[in-house]
Design a binder for these strands. Structure first.
Length: 426
RNA sequence: GGACAGGUGGCCGAGUGGUUUAAGGCGCACGCCUGGAAAGCGUGUGGGCGGCAACGUCUCCAGGGUUCGAAUCCCUGCCUGUCCGCCA
């Protein structure tokens, strides 16, 4: 959520920063500032009256105690009281609209990120070399079908397109990758493992910023709960409404969960196979830290994601997203795109973001500074560590052999139990 | 799902309409005492909003209502506990 004081006191620079997102918010911002002024005016009048009422009430109490008659005083109070009630109702209206509007303002992009929309994204560096083949590499949907790993038609039969079924060694591969990633993040990077609920309340989805912006991208149950689109949502919100101690920060969490995305109207290009699906598995990293620490924390969390791809030997590149391309809640996002030889493309396998105090403000996650003092909003960060389907795509496509088999990366062999997928076991 | 009992500050706990602008205790912080510590004594100790500040105001699970005035009375919801039912 935007800090309305910023909008009020540093209006021009704040508006200029928001304008980097390339969406027109001026009307909204004007209305917010207007409402904020009204709000303060009403508070001023209401509180003045309340102070008078409280003093008079004390007086009534004293008179009654002494056995006196307070009738005269009471008749005047009745009017005052209804006036207060009116102002309070008005205040509530204003605050409701103000909150509704403010919740739709995206986060302020950090100064260092590139300008522009998707075209402004910058490739910062590349790790590893795309593999060379003496034959025409196949796409993962063919490999997955031939080796009996992925059954798309049956998934479509059960739940519709975009719901893959993993079978045999394919299912084992998911399990192996999940455990491999969790082990690294827990044992080597020091994250606390979390197994969160997969359904969350509306308030929770508001806290991390999926609502109201991405309403159409989430599955909603008849009970009003939402299926999580990422573990970020339940995990970050664990601390909603809490005041943490600075010395307990950063809090670092890793969670494996399925992710559910409606992805309305996403048919067509780049959606074949399991590139873009309605349900997929992901290992997610979340860090909650003090405000000053978030730049350092960003480098850490990004590095932790990279380790996974490096250990799996997957070529990838790091993309700095432009201000017009980052997500609603993000202040800065780097994507890790993994190379996939069969589809001949870079695929986003991880997205690392810092949300500065945006989510902290929405979910009311605060910390008390060392040495005491008023609480501050926490900064939150997350990164995929990493998403499974695109890792599987890269693994199958990059490691395929001319005989149709797929070599398992060495680091994953202990988890898979075999060093090669041949289709024999599926 | 049904019945009953509850939800008060960091924690325990008192409080059934008016100095509760929340008693008391624990914890914590500071001070006194001490060679040092413990004990003891004293002082302080939540959050939000408005205000340059003084200060004001709100906050006893949440939201409505009654009243001049609500932690306290009424309604709705959420959560917790116990028992029963159902169930992986």
């Amino acid at each position: 959520m935007i800090d309305i004081k910023l909008l009020r006191d540093e209006s021009e620079s704040t508006r200029a920063t928001l304008a980097r997102r390339l969406s027109d918010l001026d009307g909204y911002l004007d209305r917010i500032v207007e409402l904020e002024e009204q709000r303060r005016g009403v508070i001023l009048s209401a509180e003045g009256l309340k102070a008078e009422r409280n003093r008079a009430s004390e007086e009534v109490s004293r008179i009654k105690k002494d056995g006196g008659d307070a009738t005269v005083l009471l008749s005047g109070l009745k009017e005052k009281s209804s006036e207060i009630k009116g102002l309070d109702a008005r205040l509530k209206e204003i605050e409701t609209e103000l909150r509704k509007k403010a919740l739709r303002i995206p986060n302020l992009p950090l100064p260092e990120i590139p300008d522009g929309g998707e075209d402004g994204n910058q490739i910062l560096r590349t790790w590893g070399d795309p593999p060379e083949f003496d034959f025409e590499p196949k796409a993962h949907w063919d490999i997955g079908h031939e080796l009996g790993l992925i059954d798309l038609p049956r998934g479509a039969k059960i739940a519709g397109s975009g719901f893959p079924v993993f079978t045999g060694a394919g299912a084992r591969l998911l399990r192996a990758l999940r455990n491999f990633m969790l082990d690294i993040h827990v044992d080597q990077h020091g994250y606390t493992e979390i197994a969160p609920p997969h359904l969350v309340t509306e308030e929770t989805a508001l806290g991390t910023g999926q609502l109201p912006d991405l309403e159409s991208n989430m599955y909603r149950t008849v009970d009003g709960l939402y299926l999580i689109p990422t573990a970020e949502v339940p995990v970050t919100n664990m601390h909603a409404g809490e005041i943490l101690q600075a010395e307990d920060l950063p809090r670092t969490y890793v969670a494996y969960t399925p992710c559910y995305r409606r992805e309305a109207g996403a048919h067509g290009k780049d959606t074949r196979g399991i590139i873009r699906v309605h349900q997929f598995d992901k290992v997610e990293l979340v860090r909650v830290c003090e405000a000053e620490q978030s730049p350092v924390e960003f480098d850490k969390i990004l590095g932790h994601s990279e380790v996974i791809l490096q250990k799996l030997g997957m070529p990838y590149r790091v993309l700095a997203l432009a201000a017009g391309d980052i997500g609603f809640a993000s202040a800065k996002t780097y994507d890790l795109e993994v190379w996939a030889a069969g589809v001949d493309n870079w695929l986003e396998a991880s997205s690392a973001s810092t949300f500065t105090d945006f989510q902290g403000r929405r979910a009311n996650i605060r910390y008390r500074p060392e040495g005491g003092g008023k609480p501050h909003f926490c900064h939150t960060l997350n990164a995929s560590g990493v998403a499974l389907p695109r890792t599987i795509i890269a693994l199958l496509e990059n490691n395929q052999q001319e005989d149709g088999s797929v070599v398992i990366p060495e680091a994953l062999v202990p988890y898979m139990g075999v060093d090669r997928l041949t289709g024999a076991s599926s």
